[in-house]
Structures are given as C-alpha cells and as structure tokens.
C-alpha cells in the first residue's frame, strides 16, 4: 500500500483559493455570505487543528477516561448545536436531547468498537473516537430534524391534538401520529443514504481510509458497519429524544404547551 502524501502548510494556504472563489460568487451575486464564509473558514482551521492536537494527546495517553471525556464533549457540543438550531423555547429540551444522544450513542459505539470491530480494549481511541464521532456528527442532524418536525406538527395540528384530548385521549394517544411522523422524518435521510452509498456517493470514512492507503475491500467493510450503525443510532436516538421531549410538550393537566 502507498504511504499517505502529507499536506503541508503551503498546500493548506493554497486551499484558500477555494474559499476566495466562493467569496467571489457571494460578491458577484450580492449574497452577503462573505462574513459567514470567513468565520466558517477560520473555525474550520481552528477546530480541526485543536481536535487534531487533542486526539494526538489522547492517543498518546491511551487511557479510558480521556477517550470518554472527548466522547462526552462531542455529545455536549452536538446537543448545543441542536438547541441553537431548533427554534422552540416553550418546552425545555436540552437535557432530554443530551441524555438520549448519550445513551443511544454509548450503546451503539460500544457494540461497534467492542463487539463488531473487536478492538481491545473497547475504548481504544484509534477506533472509538472516529466511530463515535461519526455517529454523533451524522445522527445529530436526524435528531434536529425529528425535534423540528415534532414541534412544528404539534403547532400546526394544535386543534386536532386538543380535540383528541377533550375526547378523553392521553397526551400519548393525542400525539401518536405526530410522534411517528417526527421519528420517520429523522430516519428517512439515513435510510436514503443506504440506497445511494457506493453508487451516488463515496462516503467520507471509506474515502479517508482509501486515501490513507487502506485496501478498498477493508474500507468498504468498515463503511458497511458505519452505514448500519448510523441507521441504528438515528433510529434509537430519534425514538428516545422524541419520546422524552413529547412528555414535556404537555402540562400536568395534559394540556398542550406548544401552540
């Protein structure tokens, strides 16, 4: 296998040409995206370099606590991103989101790294951090979509929910279809990606491994594991978060709080 071709500082600076091209498009069409593009580029450099040094340090320590610390930090950051993206402040959903992500991602990450890949120990940083990171990063969007759908449907179907409640339904009975819709909305993208993978697109992990010199057949096996674990993580995460947050959408008199 080939060794990896390193990307030096000069090449990195050269990449800024791509950003300049995007900035040029923004200027030409008066899109007003220049500032976001600049901030985004700086953040990409800063966050990834920071993560690189943290990973290097954690790999060197080779201890469970720092690995789990990084995992916890990733889940917390994902929770914060979801919280800022979902515009709903009547119902507190930060803690249930964190808990459902933490529980579902811990279980899936352990099963993938410890049981399927069979890394020893199961928290082995080289495997646990990238795989758990992919779970958090990919299913974060699904959780946000599920929550957005849950809140928007509870709002738009407010009269129908109230109608069921006044006819004797419990909040669970009154919102059953809405909950199913919200979970479905979160899961559809990961199911769709199962259809297109390998034909429409080459996923990031597989591409990364191939670039790093791995055998493509080993890469695809990892990718299959990743695709399936993402479907599971998305499903479990969405079901948990929607179930927990739905409880908070009704008051103690079972009255709807999202209107």
């Amino acid at each position: 296998m080939n060794t990896v071709i390193d990307i030096g500082p000069v090449q990195l600076v050269l990449c800024l040409v791509f950003v300049l091209a995007a900035g040029g498009a923004s200027l030409a069409h008066n899109l007003g995206l220049g500032k976001d593009l600049a901030v985004g580029t700086v953040r990409t450099f800063a966050q990834l370099f920071l993560m690189g040094y943290v990973l290097k340090f954690v790999f060197k320590l080779n201890m469970a606590a720092p690995v789990l610390g990084v995992f916890l930090l990733m889940v917390a950051a994902a929770t914060q991103i979801i919280h800022s993206r979902v515009k709903q402040r009547t119902v507190p959903f930060l803690l249930p989101t964190f808990l459902s992500m933490f529980i579902s991602y811990s279980v899936i990450s352990y099963l993938v790294v410890g049981v399927i890949v069979g890394a020893a120990p199961w928290w082995s940083p080289q495997y646990f951090i990238p795989l758990a990171g992919m779970i958090v990063g990919n299913s974060m969007t699904a959780i946000a979509v599920s929550l957005e759908r849950l809140f928007s449907e509870l709002k738009s179907k407010h009269a129908e929910v109230e109608m069921r409640l006044v006819l004797g339904a419990t909040p669970e009975e009154a919102s059953r279809e809405i909950v199913a819709d919200a979970v479905r909305a979160g899961m559809i993208p990961s199911i769709n990606s199962l259809m297109g993978v390998g034909i429409v697109f080459l996923p990031g992990m597989m591409t990364g491994q191939i670039l790093a010199g791995a055998d493509p057949l080993v890469s695809i096996r990892y990718q299959i594991v990743v695709m399936l674990m993402l479907v599971a993580a998305t499903a479990i995460g969405s079901v948990l978060v929607v179930g927990l947050v739905r409880r908070r959408c009704f008051g103690k008199a079972h009255q709807p709080l999202v209107r």
């Binding site: 109608m163 409640l165 008199a253 079972h254």
Partner: peptide, 14 residues
C-alpha cells in the same frame, strides 16, 4: 385529566 374530560366535554368553536 382524561377522566375529568369524559365527564366535562368541550366542543371547540372551530
């Protein structure tokens, strides 16, 4: 609440 609403029914305006 569901028990109460079985006895106290409400017909919405719309």
């Amino acid at each position: 609440p569901a028990e109460l609403r079985r006895h106290v029914a409400y017909v919405q305006q719309t």
